[in-house]
Computed example of a mutant assay.
Amino acid sequence: MSADTPATGRDHPGERAAADPIRLIALRDTALSVDEVFAAVGDAAAGGTALFVGTVRSHDGGADVEGLGYSAHPSAEAEIRRIAEKVVADYPVRALAAVHRVGDLAIGDLAVVVAVSCPHRGEAFEACRRLIDDLKHQVPIWKHQTFTDGAEEWVGV
Rank of each mutant, 00 (worst) to 15 (best):
K86M: 00
G62S: 07
A46Q: 11
D43K: 10
R16K: 11
D133I: 04
E85D: 14
L32E: 03
V114E: 01
R121V: 08
D64C: 02
A151I: 01
A72E: 05
D133F: 06
D90L: 12
A40S: 12
V41N: 05
L131Y: 09
D29M: 03
P140A: 08
V87C: 03
S58W: 04
A18V: 04
T49D: 02
L110Y: 14
R23I: 05
R28F: 05
I80Q: 04
D109E: 13
S71G: 14
A19Q: 13
A7G: 13
A124K: 11
A63E: 13
G9V: 09
A40T: 10
L51R: 11
A111V: 09
D104Y: 09
H137G: 02
R82D: 12
V41E: 05
A63K: 15
P92N: 04
E153Q: 14
T30W: 03
D11S: 11
D60V: 10
E66L: 06
F52T: 06
R94G: 00
V93Q: 00
D4S: 13
A44C: 01
L27I: 04
A63N: 09
R82Y: 08
I22M: 04
R94P: 00
D11P: 00
A7R: 15
L105G: 02
A63P: 00
D60N: 15
T30P: 02
C118R: 09
P119M: 12
Y91D: 05
S117A: 15
A95D: 01
D134S: 03
C128Q: 08
F52H: 05
A39L: 07
D35M: 11
R121Y: 11
D109W: 08
P140K: 07
E36Y: 11
A76I: 04
D149S: 00
D29P: 05
D43A: 10
F52E: 04
A40Y: 09
T8Y: 10
S75W: 02
R121N: 10
R28L: 00
